[in-house]
Deep mutational scan, measured.
Amino acid sequence: LEELEQFARTFKQRRIKLGFTQGDVGLAMGKLYGNDFSQTTISRFEALNLSFKNMCKLKPLLEKWLNDAE
């Protein structure tokens, strides 16, 4: 759980530094990986307001997006 919290904080910082909005991330993930995510989902991930199971599902996709975006 602590690792997920740390990743969520780091993800938000890096996303902002790269100049992407939460909506940009959701749209890009849909185009790149075929998984559409709303701005609300990205927001809830960053705020740790998703279930642990959903956080675990999203983490690898967000890590991949972040690596591809950098």
Rank of each mutant, 00 (worst) to 15 (best):
L1R: 05
L1A: 07
L1T: 14
L1E: 06
L1V: 09
L1D: 03
L1W: 10
E2N: 15
E2D: 15
E3Y: 06
E3A: 06
L4C: 01
L4P: 02
L4K: 01
L4F: 09
L4R: 02
L4E: 02
L4D: 01
L4Q: 04
E5Y: 05
E5F: 04
E5P: 02
E5N: 04
E5A: 13
E5S: 08
E5C: 08
Q6Y: 09
Q6V: 10
F7N: 02
A8W: 02
A8G: 03
A8D: 01
A8K: 01
R9I: 15
R9S: 10
T10D: 14
T10E: 14
F11N: 00
F11I: 03
K12Q: 15
K12N: 01
K12A: 03
Q13V: 12
Q13P: 03
Q13N: 08
Q13F: 11
R14T: 14
R14Y: 05
R14M: 09
R14W: 03
R15D: 00
R15N: 01
R15Y: 03
I16A: 07
I16C: 05
I16D: 06
K17A: 10
K17W: 06
K17F: 07
K17S: 13
L18N: 10
L18C: 04
L18P: 00
L18M: 14
L18F: 11
L18D: 01
L18Q: 10
G19R: 06
G19W: 00
G19I: 01
G19D: 05
F20M: 06
F20A: 13
F20Y: 06
F20D: 00
F20W: 09
T21E: 05
T21R: 05
Q22T: 10
Q22M: 10
G23D: 09
G23I: 13
G23K: 14
D24P: 00
D24Q: 13
D24C: 05
D24V: 05
V25L: 06
G26P: 03
L27Y: 14
L27H: 10
L27A: 15
L27S: 08
A28E: 15
A28F: 11
A28N: 07
M29N: 01
M29I: 04
M29H: 01
M29R: 01
M29E: 00
M29G: 01
G30Q: 15
G30Y: 10
G30V: 10
K31Q: 11
K31T: 11
K31N: 05
K31R: 13
K31G: 10
K31Y: 04
L32R: 12
L32W: 04
L32G: 08
L32A: 13
Y33H: 13
Y33P: 09
G34L: 04
G34W: 04
N35G: 15
N35Y: 13
N35D: 07
N35P: 12
N35C: 11
N35E: 15
N35W: 12
N35Q: 07
D36W: 10
D36H: 13
F37R: 02
F37P: 03
F37D: 02
F37Y: 10
F37K: 02
F37V: 09
S38M: 07
S38Q: 10
S38F: 04
S38W: 05
Q39A: 11
Q39P: 14
Q39C: 08
Q39L: 10
Q39I: 12
Q39N: 03
T40G: 11
T40L: 08
T40C: 11
T40N: 06
T40Q: 14
T40I: 03
T41Y: 08
T41D: 14
T41L: 11
T41R: 04
T41F: 06
T41N: 09
T41P: 04
I42W: 01
I42H: 00
I42P: 01
I42V: 11
S43C: 05
S43P: 13
S43K: 15
R44P: 00
R44W: 03
R44I: 00
R44G: 14
R44A: 15
R44L: 12
F45L: 07
F45T: 00
F45P: 00
E46T: 01
A47L: 11
A47C: 13
L48V: 14
L48Q: 13
L48M: 11
N49S: 13
N49D: 15
N49H: 12
L50N: 02
L50W: 04
L50P: 01
L50C: 08
L50T: 10
L50Q: 06
L50V: 11
F52Y: 07
F52D: 09
F52N: 08
F52L: 12
F52I: 11
K53I: 08
K53R: 12
K53Y: 07
N54C: 04
N54Y: 15
N54L: 07
N54H: 15
M55R: 02
M55K: 01
M55F: 06
C56K: 14
C56F: 11
C56Y: 04
C56A: 12
K57R: 09
K57Y: 07
K57F: 11
K57M: 14
L58P: 01
L58R: 03
L58K: 07
L58E: 02
L58I: 15
L58C: 09
K59I: 13
K59A: 07
K59C: 05
P60I: 15
P60D: 08
P60Y: 02
L61S: 11
L61N: 13
L61D: 13
L61F: 15
L62T: 02
L62C: 07
L62G: 01
K64W: 03
K64G: 11
W65Q: 01
W65P: 02
W65C: 03
L66V: 13
L66Q: 02
N67S: 04
D68H: 04
D68P: 03
D68Q: 09
A69W: 06
A69R: 13
A69K: 07
A69N: 15
A69M: 14
E70T: 07
E70D: 15
E70H: 03
E70Y: 04
E70L: 09
E70C: 07
